[in-house]
Design a protein around this nucleic acid. Structure first.
Lengths: 227, 227, 227, 227
DNA sequence: CATGAATGAGAATTCATTCAT
DNA sequence: TATGAATGAATTCTCATTCAT
C-alpha cells in the first residue's frame, strides 16, 4: 500500500473529494442551494451518496466549503486591477485616464463572467441562511477590490494629480462608476451580458467621469475653463 | 348568497384573495420562493389550501402575481426622486449640488428598506427561474429610476449648467454614485444597514463628485482654477 | 356540513386521530420507538402519512401522546387496589391477611398484563431519551400504587393492628413483596407469565410475610409464642 | 507473518478483537442496540469496519457476545453477597439482622451501578428480539442472587433461627425487600440514584422487616409480646 | 488482511397538488 | 365553495453489509 491510500493529496480519496467539489460547485452555482440535491451531487460526481457524506458532514458543510473556495479565488480580480494600473505611475492626467480606462475594462471583464455572477447571485440569495459566507464574500471581493484601487490611487493623490480627502471613498466611486451599471443589470438579466463595445464605452465613461471629478487639472485639458 | 360572493370587488372572495396575497408577500419576501410552502401561505392567510388554488393556479402564478404587484409599487421611489429635484430648476451650481444631495439622500432611504432589499434579493435569487419577472423589475426599478433622473437633469444640461453628451449615462453615474456602495453592501450584509449619518455622507459625496465631474462651472466654485 | 366537520369530537378528523393513536399504540408497545416507523403507523391506521403529520408534529410527539395516554390509564390499577381493600376495615389480623392476599392477587393480575408489561419495558428502554415520560410514569404507576396502599394501611396502623413507623416504607414493602418477584421475571421472560396458581401462591406468601413482619399480634396466631 | 497474526491470544488480531468488544460494550450500554451503528463501533475501536465484520458475522453476533460477556461478569454481585454473609453463621437474631443489613447494603451498591443498570435496561429493551439473552441474564443475575441468598439462609433455617417452609421464596422476599424499591426507581429515573444515607436506610428496613417476618424469636426481642 | 467506496434500502419529513365531502 | 384527507414523489440523512484494491 502506497502512502497515497493514507489520504495523501492525490490519493483516491482526495480525487473523489475533488470530483465531488467540482460537481457540487457547478450545481450550486447553476441551481442554488435548495435547487441542488445531494443525490444530484453524488450522481454528477460519479460517487455514492455515502462518499459524499463521508467527506462532508452535511449539505451545509459542502456548500460552505464550495463557496469558501470560490470566494478565495477572487484574487484573480485583484491581480487584474493591480496589473492594469501598471508598475510606474502615470505622470499626466491623460495618461492616468488611459490607465483607469484599462483598469475599468479589466475589472468589467473579470466581473462579468457567468461564474462570478452566479456566485454573486448565489451568495445574495443565501445571505440570510449563511450570513458568515456573505460577509466573507463581501469583504474578499467587492470591499477588497476597492481597497486595491485605493492603494493604487494613493501615489496620484500624493503627487497632486488627484484630489481626494477620502481616498477610500474616491476608490469606491471609481469602482462603482465602472462596474455598477453593468453588474446591476447582469444580476437581473443574466442572459444579456454587455458586449465588448459596450464594455469599452462603460470603461471610458467611468474613467472620464472619475478624472473630471477628482483631477483638478482635468479642466484645462478637456474644455476651456469656464469664464 | 349576495353578489359579493361572486367575486365582486370587496366581496368575501376578493377579501380572501387579498389576505392570501398579503400573507404570501410577507412569506416570499422573508423566506424566498422555495422557502415558502403553500401550506404556510394558506395558514398565514387563515384560508384553506383549496381557496389558494382556486385563486391562483399554482405556486408560480401566486409568485408572479406578488412580485408583479410589489414591483409595480416602485413608483414610490420614482416620486421621491422627482419631488426631491423640486419644481423649478436650480440656477446655480451650488443650488444644484444641494438638490442632488437631497435626491441622493431620498433615493438611499427609499432603497435601503428591508422590504425593498428583500424584493431585490428575491428577484436576483430567482432570476434564472423567472427571467421575465427579473427583466420587468429591472426595467421598472433601477432603469426607470435612471430615466427619471435623466429627465430631471435635462434642463440643466440644456441650460449649460451641466455638460453631458450622454444624458442617460450621466444619470446612471449619479444614481450609482449615490446608491451602489450602500446597496451592494446591503445585499450581502442585510443586518447592517447604514445609519443616518452614513447616508448623509454618501449622499453628499455623490452630489459633490457628480457636480465636479459634470458641471464645468464647478471648478471656479470649489477651488481656484488651476493656473 | 354538520358541526362534526369543525373538529368536534367524533368528527372525521377525530376519528382518524383515534385510528392513528390506536395503531401507533400497538406498534410502539410491540416494537418500541425506534422499531416503529411512521410509514407503518400510517399504514396500520389506514391513513396517509400526511394525516399523521398533520395531527402530530413528529414521531416524538406521537410517542409522547401515546405514552402519556396509556400512563394516564393506570388508574385502573389503583382502583383495583382500593376495591380489594374493601370499604370497612378488617378487625382481626386474619381478616387483614385475607384482604391483603386479595389485594396482592388483584395487583398481580393488573400488572402482569402484556400491555402493561410492554409499556413498562418501552418506558424503561427509552428512559434516556424521554426522561420526563419515565418520571411521569414512575410517579403515576409504581409510586402511586404505593401511596394508595399506604392510605389503605393507615387505619390499621392507627388501630394498632399494624405497627409501622414509616407507613410509606411499609406500603412499599408490601407492594414489592407481592409484585417484584413476578414482575422482575416478566421483564426478562415476556412469554412466561405466571399462571393462576403461581399468582395465588405469590399473593399468599406476600400477605403472610407482610403480616408477620408488621402485625405485632400475628405471633400468637400462627405459631406458639417462642418460649 | 508471525503466529501472532493468526489469532493467538495476545496477538494483534486478539487485541483488535478486544478493542472492538470494549468499544461496542460502551456504545451498546450507552445507546442501545439500534442506537449503536457499526460505523461508530469501528471508529471507537480505531479499526476498519471490515475488521469488525471479520471478527463478528453481524451486528447481532457482536451484541450477543457482548451481552453474554457482561452477563457472565455478574459473579461479582454473587461474591459480594456471600462475603457479606460471613464465614461462620451468626448465632443470635440480632447478629443475623446485622449481617442481613450488610448483605442488603452490599447488594444495593452492587446493583445500583450505572453499568449494571444500563445492562438491565438494555436487556429489558431487547427482550423481544433476544429472548435467549434475556433468559440467560435473568438466570445468571437476579435468579442466581436469590439462589445464593437461599444457600446462605439455609443454616439459619436448619438451626431454627429462621422459619421458612419455602426457602427460595424467603430468599426472594429478602432480595426484593432490599432491592426492588431502589432498583425499580432507578429503571425509570436513571439520573437519580439513591445516596449512601438512603441506601443505609433501605438496607436496614429490609433487614428488620425480613427478620420480623421470618425469625420467630424476633418478637421477644424488639417488642414485648402482645398479651 | 485492511481501507475506502459502493450498494441498496429505509427512515423522517416536507411539498405541491388533487379528491371527496 | 371550502375543508380535511390523500397522493406520490422528493429530500436529507443513516445504516448494515459487501466489494475492490
Amino acid at each position: 500500500m502506497s502512502t497515497a491510500t493514507q489520504g495523501a493529496p492525490g490519493g483516491r480519496t482526495a480525487q473523489k473529494r475533488e470530483a465531488i467539489l467540482a460537481a457540487a460547485t457547478t450545481l450550486f452555482l447553476r441551481n442554488g442551494f435548495r435547487g441542488t440535491s445531494m443525490d444530484e451531487v453524488a450522481a454528477a460526481a460519479s460517487v455514492s451518496k455515502q462518499t459524499v457524506y463521508k467527506q462532508f458532514v452535511d449539505k451545509e458543510a459542502l456548500f460552505r466549503e464550495i463557496v469558501g473556495a470560490v470566494t478565495g479565488r477572487s484574487d484573480a480580480v485583484i491581480d487584474i486591477i493591480a496589473a492594469a494600473f501598471g508598475a510606474a505611475p502615470a505622470v499626466t492626467v491623460d495618461e492616468l485616464e488611459d490607465r483607469l480606462r484599462a483598469v475599468a475594462r479589466g475589472y468589467l471583464d473579470a466581473v462579468l463572467h457567468v461564474q462570478v455572477l452566479s456566485l454573486r447571485r448565489l451568495i445574495i440569495a443565501e445571505a440570510d441562511r449563511f450570513p458568515d459566507l456573505a460577509r466573507r464574500y463581501y469583504e474578499q471581493a467587492p470591499a477588497r477590490g476597492i481597497e486595491v484601487i485605493a492603494a493604487q490611487l494613493r501615489p496620484y493623490v500624493e503627487a497632486g494629480l488627484l484630489h481626494a480627502d477620502d481616498l477610500r471613498g474616491a476608490a469606491a466611486h471609481f469602482a462603482y462608476l465602472a462596474l455598477a451599471p453593468a453588474q446591476d443589470r447582469a444580476m437581473f438579466l443574466p442572459a444579456d451580458l454587455p458586449d465588448d463595445h459596450e464594455r469599452d464605452r462603460r470603461a471610458a465613461e467611468a474613467a472620464v467621469a472619475f478624472v473630471a471629478a477628482y483631477a483638478p487639472a482635468a479642466r484645462q485639458r478637456q474644455r476651456p475653463a469656464v469664464r
